[in-house]
Amino acid sequence: MYAQLVKSEGTKTREEMTPEELAFQERIDRGEKIEPKEWMPEGYRKTLIRQIGQHAHSEIVGQLPEGNWITRAPTLERKAILLAKVQDEAGHGLYLYSAAETLGVSRDELMELLHAGKMKYSSIFNYPTLTWADMGAVGWLVDGAAIMNQVPLQRTSYGPYSRAMIRICKEESFHQRQGYAIMMKMAQGTPAQKRMAQDALNRLWYPALMMFGPSDKDSVHSAQSMAWKIKMNTNDELRQKFVDQTVPQAEYLGLTVPDPNLKWNEEKGGYDFSEPDWSEFYDVLAGNGPCNKDRLGARVKAWEDGAWFREGLMAHAEKAAARRAQAAE
């Protein structure tokens, strides 16, 4: 998930397409995968770079809210599980940057765009993790929402992206189960633990709903992406699916979803629910979420503080190559 507002071009009708574009669209319609060396419209390439880049950035910025609790994890086992999870997220970032590289943009270029504030990551990671229950709620809700979006993306038209999604989805569903296991412990725990669990759900519910992006009626970029099979479902479809899946899980935990309007709608076979506060969403995207400055600041600091390290490795590689060349003479 994590690609909430990816700009793309307007959709062309078949009549407006060049023969190349038409042939390309037909391949996609037949369900063929597009591979890196093959011809693709510039718009397709650019939109994919933005989307995969946003997704990759989300994985690495996403290390931070959970990293926040690694040193305070309550048992050795929980510490190990959380460490392994955050490590997986870094791995996801790596696969996704590699997928983006096949489109002709390097990881360093993408990172610099992130650091300059020219590329986004998911709004969800600009919310703080305030108690241990947030480690449960993030796995359950955030990884849960991510899976909702990423499972269909396993069938996306771009080969390297689709393959990255297949690897990533396996791990994400593991993360979601681990998160839910933490919630279960808390919900069945002491009164203080129950309070933490409910508080985490209260704070993260609407930000999780925002992960799917604005409502379809306000989402201007979807049509072309859907025609290209870069986006497989509309934002509202996925959000509805997420709510329908998550509400019974909350009930099973004995927790209350913080929405007085939540009601099963027999006719549509899904829940009616309140929209998140979209003005808050746009505020967060504009950089005014509770943690935007801290999150981006931490990534920029890591990058800048690490410059000497990366340069050192590069210099050594050059020296070693020169020595090898000299030895070969």
């Binding site: 690495i60 990293g67 050795l76 460490l83 690490g306 390290f309």
Partner: peptide
């Protein structure tokens, strides 16, 4: 070592350090 998680100079290092920390915590158990 786990304090570095998400803050190291390259993604590969984040992954490698998490690995070392995980091994050490596992050994601790």
């Amino acid at each position: 070592v786990s304090e570095w998680c998400g803050h190291s100079p390259a993604l590969e290092e984040d992954i490698a350090l998490a690995n070392v920390a995980l091994d050490l915590i596992g050994q601790t158990q």
